[in-house]
Design a protein around this nucleic acid. Sequence first.
DNA 1: TGAAAAAGAGTGATCACTCACTTATATCAT
DNA 2: ATGATATAAGTGAGTGATCACTCTTTTTCA
Lengths: 194, 194
Amino acid sequence: MAGMGKAEDTKARIERAALTLFVARGVAETTTREIAMAASIAEGTIYRYFPSKEQLALNMFLGHHRALAEALDEAQRPHPSLRAKTEAIVRCYCDWADRDWTLFAYHLLNQHSFLIQVPDGTPNPVNVVREAIGRAMAAGEIPKNNVDLAAASAIGVVLQAATYKVYGRFEGPLSDHVTFFAAAAWAVLSVKEK
Amino acid sequence: MAGMGKAEDTKARIERAALTLFVARGVAETTTREIAMAASIAEGTIYRYFPSKEQLALNMFLGHHRALAEALDEAQRPHPSLRAKTEAIVRCYCDWADRDWTLFAYHLLNQHSFLIQVPDGTPNPVNVVREAIGRAMAAGEIPKNNVDLAAASAIGVVLQAATYKVYGRFEGPLSDHVTFFAAAAWAVLSVKEK
DNA sequence: TGAAAAAGAGTGATCACTCACTTATATCAT
DNA sequence: ATGATATAAGTGAGTGATCACTCTTTTTCA
């Protein structure tokens, strides 16, 4: 932990311990005592850095949510075509998953509990994809379908595979399959509804 | 509730109340007192029908899980080609979702907590799809890719759309989009990896 | 030596579950 | 039919355990 003060180190240890336990056992099922033990600190120390267990859980979710959205947006922006954007987004997403799998899995498995608490105006991974698709439909690059439906199905191609990796249905880095995911997502987007 | 004894009616009321609350607030966040109030019975009555809150939650999950798997298997069996099986499976799945949306949403949102507790040998929705895809690959009907990966991505096309309906990203019955889902899933399966 | 950080016993609230009891319903002898 | 009795269904106050969070004390270190 180079260049990290003692306090910041403690805070990071708390977050990492909480993250691991949240993924393994669920947020509600993880106690503050367990977090403290896993982080090798006292229970009270958690509250020097976070006002509550809920805020600790929410902060980590929102941090990753926003950062991922910004990364995806930067990845797709330079490319002119949706086909190229698709590949760039998929690659960026898989890289994020592989870089910090625990954080990624936490974000993936707890969307339903935190998504409603995302403040308005926060960069949003789904919106990045949705808007790129919407523009491509308007430009006639792909068939004009229901945008939300197309976005959901295309995202699902990658997201469900990631979910099954969380469940242990297969191993190895997600990035190994970037080409397949991109081709599959593109195939979905090319389908003409009805 | 035709042909339902008083006891069975009470049991059904408990299950329905629990289901609604579990979907709206989460299993861990729902108290037995709330379930009792919503079902218009006393808290103690829950324990005449279920040994614990956990078993109540697990029973409902497993019941739907097994029944869905059997329905999907019956839906795909008569069809010879994977293309036809795909359409049949997608249609069956969407019908189940539309028929009892609360139960469906409960199953969808709580897979990660219950999937590890599914007894070996239980009919499994994912396996039905996986095996159909595996046979089609062996028969040369579709390109020979990683079976788990192909299954995950194809399933994701429908499942993620269903998830976004839970989140309120769009409305109306899932069945309205059966043709699109089937075409999109088929497009994914037709992609040649690498 | 003073302020920041960490400790960990303590606290009040919550919650799943129990249990002694009441009420409703079914069974059956007269 | 009627009353007696057995069984099932339902009740809700009570209980013990748990847990997030607090507070006073102790340690660390600049």
